[in-house]
Amino acid sequence: MKFDILESACVPLPLENVDTDQIIPARFLSATSRTGFGENLFRDWRFDKAGNKNEAFVLNDPAFKGQVLVAGKNFGCGSSREHAVWAISDYGFKAVVSSFFADIFRNNALNNGLLPVIVPEDYLKYLLELINTEPGTMVRIDLGKQSLSVLPDGEPVSFEINKFKKECLMKGLDDIDYLLSIKEMITAYEFRNTLKR
């Protein structure tokens, strides 16, 4: 999966500290494959105990569709479960916008082609309000330029991303391919260290 430019409407989730237990509750972690987790994304917010749709929750609101999730700060805190990222991707999101991501979540997202976009806190506020008042608002995320803007003519904000990770995402490469390609250096490191120890 290569990532380049994404133009899409957004789904707003204006809550802070959304943890991975909310994204995918532990009781759905028994599967041994990577697929199918989207069904249970935000399970306990989307459905009530009897399994009925909670109409008030944003994923059940037909006004909001799109491949970009916009969420409050400290998104993805808590457990290291990569299942959280698999669930978000499996549901159809390609990018998550927030002012702040938990470290492990950000790594997991990058390792699975889900782009974490970090924007300033006041911009996030502005964006969340805008989407709420005008559902269907489109944004453009340009990974090459590292910028996000509201379409058609919003002022772009830039976001940071590690250069190596950016290249991996744009080329659709993964970290394991890279690590396997430097196997000799790893062996040399091991050799140096057994000598030292």
Binding site: E82, N108, N111, F164, D175, I176
Partner: peptide
């Protein structure tokens, strides 16, 4: 703590990025 993709990295190469 690491994610599953990183578990795979460690199993394969004893390293993580």
């Amino acid at each position: 703590g690491i994610g599953t993709s990183e578990v795979e990295m460690v199993l394969a190469t004893q390293c993580v990025l």
